[in-house]
Design a protein around this nucleic acid. Structure first.
Lengths: 138, 138
DNA sequence: TGAAATGGGACCGGGAAGGTCCTATTATCA
DNA sequence: TGATAATAGGACCTTCCCGGTCCCATTTCA
């Protein structure tokens, strides 16, 4: 239902990475580059990035030196934005009397957490986050 | 992954109901009774109740006048307890670098919400919560 | 002994998660 | 202008698990 799926995780990994690049004022990053950085399945990541771009979170540039970059400030992108962008369908079951009300709070919780926050946090928790991401495998 | 599933919703509905009964010092309620109260699929609810009892959240009494009742105080039962009780398997994907850390916070969030809290809240939000639960259908 | 309840399973169908692949379009570089 | 590198937009496949049912054994009370 809320679906904190693995696809959502890929989306967050990519978004945080792009946020870091944006902070460094670097250009767009290609899907291939991101996939190699974190050892993610390329074909799937491409779909995820498409979805994020479609949702307006990323700006895409075609062509040789193209790729994806954050479309807005990292502070303006909430975790909920990212999760919902990759969540397809979403009839979001109207029935579910108790969880239905709970979901509102959970969404609020995810809405107040921003990609900028995740990036900051990742940088604090030891600088080797990138390494740990890589060795986390998959 | 965290799976806020419909089964979890049934579990919460039942748990809140049993918490209300416990507050009124009434005896155990049978699966059939709960299913009819909220118009839930009986066979499935039975499984859910079994799982809740297995997790130690409910105490069960067999036999004619038997049924289920809350095993401990409603304040001592967190939403996370209930959700996890009906979540089977749960390899809980070790990979998921970003969501992995997020999940910790979400769990904390769910852990601090108790069944007693849900009951209180339900009673406040108009007394017709029970009715709205029933007419919510399915 | 029979009815009403839980205990402990196995079992199944459909949908979505996870993943691949193909073709078009756009942009850069030589 | 042609090759190359990228995204855009799909269709497609497979595996897992959610939602759900059913069965049989056991316990309890009348």
């Amino acid at each position: 239902m809320l679906s904190l799926t693995r696809k959502a995780d890929y989306a967050l990994v990519a978004t945080v990475y792009l946020a870091r690049r944006r902070a460094a004022a670097e250009g767009p990053a290609s899907a291939r580059e991101i996939a190699e950085q974190f050892d993610l399945p390329l074909a799937l990541l491409m779909n995820v990035l498409k979805q994020l771009a479609g949702a307006g979170l990323l700006r895409s540039t075609r062509g040789v030196a193209g790729g994806y970059e954050l479309a807005v400030a990292a502070e303006a992108v909430s975790v909920l934005d990212v999760v919902e962008a990759v969540a397809e369908g979403e009839a979001d079951a109207p029935d579910a009397p108790v969880l239905g009300r709970l979901r509102g709070r959970l969404n609020g919780f995810l809405r107040q957490m921003t990609v900028a926050g995740l990036l900051r946090e990742a940088d604090e928790t030891g600088g080797e986050t990138v390494v740990s991401l890589r060795t986390a495998g998959r």
